[in-house]
């Protein structure tokens, strides 16, 4: 049995008296796409914050490539190969698109040269994302859809093993969402990444992932292949009145 690239064991995150994530397990291997869905407030983003080291779990363990990184700061996770995007794009507003991408290469990416040879140059990353023509523009000046791509580019520049995508398709048009899904598959197939993809709009995600995990009120409600999870009565109930209507176009 091989060690998973990323493994979360009974992760619990608390804010004051509120338990945002309550004993969630997750295994992600290289070259797979795992989806996480759940109604608003299910703890999806908080779970990502734990997976990327931005919050420290109250209990539970996090392993990256078999190494226990629980309690380590976020840059250690980045250097171990965990890259992420944020729900609202957090690009460096005053840097150009090319400079923003270079940033990741200079820090976590530099440390990970030995692990990953791919995407070693800024132009290669910009080409991969189709952002080459925006290279010299300030990050603040590109469209929100392109800022999302840039965020992925900044993440890829860290030469990750695992890519965490937080609602990268939110607010995009149908055609743009299709493009994002294709990009996710290319990250898996061409770069060999394990991708964890959070999305609130469920339909997009179910079509694109191999395995899906459903969070509800901080707990894991179901996990499995998308077609089975979509039929799960518990899942349907959790979504009724929240995401069900908008999720099924």
């Amino acid at each position: 049995m091989t060690t998973p690239a990323l493994a979360a064991r009974s992760v619990v995150v608390r804010f004051g008296g509120l338990t945002a994530v309550d004993g969630v397990d997750l295994d992600v291997d290289d070259r797979t796409v795992v989806g996480i869905i759940g109604p608003n407030g299910a703890g999806k983003t908080t779970f990502f914050n734990a997976l990327s080291g931005l919050v420290t779990p109250a209990s539970g363990r996090l392993f990256v490539g078999g190494a226990d990184l629980t309690g380590k700061p976020a840059h250690v996770f980045a250097r171990a190969g965990i890259a992420r995007t944020f729900q609202t794009p957090r690009v460096f507003a005053d840097m150009t698109v090319a400079e923003s991408v270079r940033f990741g290469l200079e820090f976590a990416g530099r440390r990970r040269r030995a692990e990953r040879a791919s995407l070693a140059e800024v132009p290669a990353i910009l080409d991969f994302l189709g952002l080459a023509d925006s290279a010299a523009l300030p990050a603040r000046a590109v469209t929100p859809a392109r800022q999302r791509l840039l965020e992925i580019g900044m993440a890829l520049a860290t030469r990750p093993r695992i890519l965490l995508l937080d609602e990268v398709a939110a607010g995009l048009t149908h055609a743009e969402v299709e493009k994002v899904a294709r990009l996710v598959h290319r990250c898996r197939d061409e770069l060999g990444l394990g991708v964890v993809w959070i999305e609130h709009a469920v339909a997009v995600l179910l079509d694109a992932v191999e395995r899906v995990l459903v969070l509800h009120q901080g707990r894991k409600l179901a996990e499995g292949i998308p077609s089975a999870v979509a039929r799960d009565p518990l899942v349907i109930e959790a979504y009724l009145g929240d995401g069900a209507a908008e999720a099924r176009p």
Binding site: S52, G53, L54, P73, A74, H75, F77, A78, R79, A83, R84, F86, R90, V91, F92, A93, D94, M95, F103, G104, F107, A108, G109, R110, R111, M154, A155, A157, T158
Partner: peptide, 10 residues
């Protein structure tokens, strides 16, 4: 520019 973002980039 964005401290947390910088940290997640290593």
């Amino acid at each position: 520019a964005d401290e947390q973002r910088a940290q997640t980039l290593g």
